[in-house]
């Protein structure tokens, strides 16, 4: 398929339905149709449409500024906090419109957890960090909390390292540990979806590989969408990959296909490192 590069270097997005090579049986956990996003007058996302399958890892890749972070934040409506931000189109989770009138944002964010690029633990104890979501949700039963906290820290592969010092400050942990703590914190409120915005970009290679292992283990129980600028990471960790460029979705396919056999030239140029 030929791409026409317009004079101002605007990329013409392929006007076709997102490619789904196999897994027709896999339900879409998250369904996106013609999603646009604006910061004031500036449009940063153009007509994004894709289906994100349940209990798989979907990676979003693309050069800086291509809109992948904005997109992922639209899923749990973190962009609502920004003034002058506007969205149109639909994002549905399990069939329910995220931007619909009867969707409660607070409830949505419990169901869709998020981990950030820079780990941001609260200046409290490890225990209190993980317990935060539970406490604001009204949980008072200490035994129940203890159980959930242990389970979350175990799932985040942090339990054994911290089980003897749950009441130590979270800030005393290393960068990689703090990020796993943030993952545990997000897991504690029992989300169905985990959004991860470049979760390992600020970590050293060892900590990074620990996070990647973790993601691999977590996908059995959670639907994971991960933004990453590290293509090798996307190739290692994800089942499906979406390539974004200048706010448009260029190609979306099984990870293998994207990296070995991309259909679009732009995709091929990006994954072979010709730019980006």
């Amino acid at each position: 398929m030929n791409l026409v590069l317009e004079p101002e270097s605007k990329i013409a997005a392929p006007r076709m339905a997102p490619i789904q090579m196999n897994d027709i049986q896999t339900e879409s956990k998250i369904s996106v149709r013609d999603f646009d996003f604006f910061y004031g007058p500036l449009q940063v996302l153009h007509g994004i449409s894709l289906e994100i399958p349940a209990q798989k890892v979907t990676a979003l890749i693309g050069p800086s500024g291509c809109g992948k972070s904005t997109f992922i934040r639209s899923i749990n409506r973190m962009n609502d906090i920004i003034t002058d931000a506007r969205a149109s189109g639909t994002i549905t989770i399990d069939g329910k419109d995220v931007y619909g009138g009867d969707t409660d944002v607070v409830e949505l964010r419990r169901k869709v957890g998020m981990v950030f690029q820079k780990s941001n633990p609260f200046p409290k104890s490890i225990y209190d960090n993980v317990a935060y979501g539970l406490r604001i949700g009204g949980m008072r039963n200490k035994r129940q909390m203890d159980e959930i906290i242990e389970r979350s820290l175990t799932r985040a592969a942090l339990w054994h390292e911290v089980k003897d010092r749950l009441h130590a400050s979270a800030l005393a942990l290393s960068g990689g540990q703090q990020q796993r703590l943030c993952i545990a914190r997000a897991l504690a409120v029992d989300p169905e979806i985990l959004l991860m915005d470049e979760p390992a970009s600020a970590l050293d290679p060892i900590a990074t590989s620990k996070i990647e292992e973790l993601i691999y283990e977590l996908k059995d129980n959670y639907t994971i969408v991960i933004v990453t600028h590290n293509m090798q990471q996307a190739a290692r960790v994800s089942d499906r990959t979406a390539f974004f460029m200048l706010g448009k979705l260029i190609e979306y396919a099984d990870t293998n296909a994207i990296f070995m056999n991309p259909r679009e030239k732009m995709t091929e140029d990006y994954v072979t490192g010709r730019f980006g």
Binding site: D104, V106, E107, I136, G137, G138
Partner: peptide
């Protein structure tokens, strides 16, 4: 919306 959530929002 649960009662707890309603209270928190209030």
């Amino acid at each position: 919306m649960t009662a707890n959530l309603r209270r928190r929002k209030l």
